[in-house]
């Protein structure tokens, strides 16, 4: 029975590899929580930074990140959901559809820094929005658009065909059918996509580097044409550009922890929602 040993060996190796990956993830999260938790206080979360970020809080960065991700989702969600509806419900296999699909795949593969260059060229300079929340949100919106389209499409496809046929057979128009018999069932799945999108927008640094982020701006924005600080950029500045990098280490860990908690909370929410949705769809069949 020599072969069994080979299998046992291989299985153990694969198990070791898989668990070492999870161990690294766990260690990263553990390290940031352990060193960041002591920094978190009400003053840190609700105060304004001073001394170039060495002292004080990170409120403007939190607010900036919230504005940017909300702005991105407000633009990307309707566009993404409408695209997905068109692709699954209206678009038959054709040249135009194929082109849209290719565009989505291409868009999903565009490096985030290239989105930054694009946002700089189109929104900041050509439309003359300047370095602003508006320019940054629009750039982020295009970046998360593919995620939202793909997850919304999955949600729409998961709705059984019979739901549509029943409505159409009763004489309802196609849009009425979609509105009353398809969308309500696809909604949780679409929500998953948008939550994932918000999480991604909140964590990205490179696109906002060139379109919105302020180095140090200890006040809250007045309009969408203002620059803002943002958590990822603030962390980058504190960790690499600050004159006293060792001294501000606690602030770095605190910022990293807040960013990590925000992004992971969104991702976890999306994962939980998705598994619930999948269970619900299964039970309806």
């Amino acid at each position: 029975m020599k072969r069994d040993y080979a299998e046992i060996f291989f299985n153990s190796l694969a198990r070791l590899v898989t668990y070492s990956i999870t161990a690294v993830i766990a260690y990263i999260i553990f390290d940031i929580v352990r060193n960041g938790i002591g920094v978190i206080s009400w003053e840190f979360l609700s105060g304004f930074p001073s001394n170039g970020g060495a002292k004080g809080g990170i409120l403007p960065a939190i607010v900036g990140t919230v504005y940017l991700s909300l702005g991105a989702i407000i633009v990307a969600l309707p566009l993404g959901v409408a695209s997905a509806i068109y692709l699954t419900e209206y678009g038959k296999q054709g040249k135009f559809n194929e082109m849209i699909r290719l565009a989505i795949v291409t868009l999903a593969g565009v490096p985030s820094i290239v989105f930054g260059l694009f946002g700089l060229g189109l929104f900041v300079l050509f439309f003359d929005f300047g370095s602003s929340i508006l320019a940054g949100s629009l750039t982020l919106a295009l970046m998360i658009l593919p995620t939202i389209i793909v997850t919304s499409e999955e949600a729409l496809r998961a709705v059984p065909r019979s739901y549509r046929e029943g409505s159409l057979a009763l004489g309802a128009t196609q849009w009425t059918t979609i509105r009353t018999n398809v969308l309500p069932y696809a909604l949780p799945g679409m929500l998953t996509g948008s939550i994932l999108g918000i999480g991604r927008a909140a964590g990205e640094t490179a696109p906002i580097l060139l379109t919105v982020a302020a180095f140090f701006l200890p006040r809250l924005p007045d309009s969408v044409f203002d620059q803002v600080m943002a958590l990822p950029y603030h962390l980058y500045i504190l960790a690499t550009q600050h004159p006293e990098i060792e001294l501000v280490r606690p602030m770095q860990y605190g910022t990293a922890l807040v960013l990590l908690v925000i992004v992971l909370a969104f991702n976890l929410g999306a994962i939980v929602l998705r598994s619930r949705f999948q269970r619900k769809i299964k039970s309806q069949h």
């Binding site: 940031i32 991604r200 994962i271």
Partner: peptide, 19 residues
């Protein structure tokens, strides 16, 4: 395991760089 590894995909790159 699956969601746990998906979490890794969600950690912002600047946090990984910081680590």
């Amino acid at each position: 395991l699956k969601p746990f590894i998906e979490i890794l995909a969600g950690i912002p790159s600047v946090v990984i760089g910081f680590f």
